[in-house]
Structures are given as structure tokens and as C-alpha cells.
Amino acid sequence: MISRFLSFVILVPLAILIVVFCVANRAPVTVSLDPFGTLPQFVYQIPLFLALMAALIVGTVIGGIGTWFTQAHYRSAAWKRRQEIDRLKREADDARERLRQERESRAAALPHATGTALAAPRPV
């Protein structure tokens, strides 16, 4: 509940600022994709707020991709740990099953010991 309230308190003023910025910067600017200025077909007239918002979105996407690549080793280590945990759980389950079968076979081999069970090992 508190996180929703904080999100509301932060995002509403931010949205208002973005709308005010976009309304105040509607004038067209020339954007050229030609670094040498020799090709006029790579020149566009777009509103300033659109150019800035596009740059902000592209920067956020590129930053997110860069972060994702730099954190790849953490994801790899987590995957390896998960595989190791799963392997150890399977080994522990197999060991418990073998112990249960061994107890049953010993109990069956001792017919005179009716009603007595083998002592279970103490948990560690």
C-alpha cells in the first residue's frame, strides 16, 4: 500500500512535468542524420520534445541492454547454483530411499523382532 502511494506521489508530478515540457517545446527543429552535411535527404523537421523523448527512450533501452549483458555472469552463477541444488536434492532423496529399503529388508530378515523398529539415525 505504501509503495503504491509513493509511486503515485513520484509519478504524478513527473508526468505533469513531462506534459508541461512537451507543450512548451513544440517548435520544430532540424535533425540531420548526415554527419558531413552533404546529403539533404537525411534532414528532418520534428518537434524538439519528440527528439528529446526519442533520445531518452533510446538511451534507456541501450542502458538496459548494457546492464543485462554486464549482469550475465550473475545469472550464469545463479543457474549453476540452482542446478547444483537440484542435483543435491536428488542425491538426498535417493539416499533416503536406499535407507528406507535397507531398513525394510533388515526388518523382513528379522522375523522374531516383531513390533520393534530399527532406530532411525538422528538428524544432523
Score class of each variant (00 low, 15 high):
Ala107Met: 15
Ser105Ile: 15
Leu14Asn: 06
Ser32Gly: 09
Glu91Asp: 14
His112Tyr: 12
Gly63Lys: 14
Glu102Cys: 05
Leu17Tyr: 14
Ala15Ser: 13
Leu50Thr: 03
Tyr74Asp: 06
Ser32Val: 05
Arg81Lys: 14
Tyr74Met: 08
Ala113Cys: 11
Phe21His: 09
Val43Trp: 04
Ile10Thr: 05
Ser105Asp: 12
Arg4Lys: 14
Leu118Arg: 14
Asp94Met: 14
Val31Cys: 03
Arg100Phe: 13
Thr38Trp: 08
Gly64Glu: 05
Leu33Ala: 12
Glu102Gly: 06
Val23Leu: 12
Ala119Thr: 14
Pro40Thr: 15
Gly64Lys: 07
Val29Leu: 03
Gly115Ile: 05
Val20Arg: 00
Leu48Val: 01
Ala107Phe: 04
Ile62Asp: 04
His73Gln: 08
Ala117Glu: 08
Leu50His: 01
Leu110Ser: 05
Ala95Leu: 09
Asp86Asn: 03
Phe8Leu: 13
Asp34His: 02
Glu104Met: 13
Ile10Ser: 00
Gly115Tyr: 07
Ala109Pro: 02
Asp86Glu: 12
Ala54Met: 12
Asp94Glu: 15
Arg100Met: 13
Glu91Pro: 05
Glu91Asn: 11
Ala51Thr: 02
Val31Phe: 01
Leu50Val: 07
Gln83Phe: 06
Ala119Tyr: 07
Val58Cys: 11
Ala55Gln: 11
Ala77Ser: 13
Val124Asn: 02
Phe69Ile: 07
Ala78Met: 13
Ala92Ile: 15
Ala108Trp: 02
Pro123Trp: 10
Ser105Asn: 10
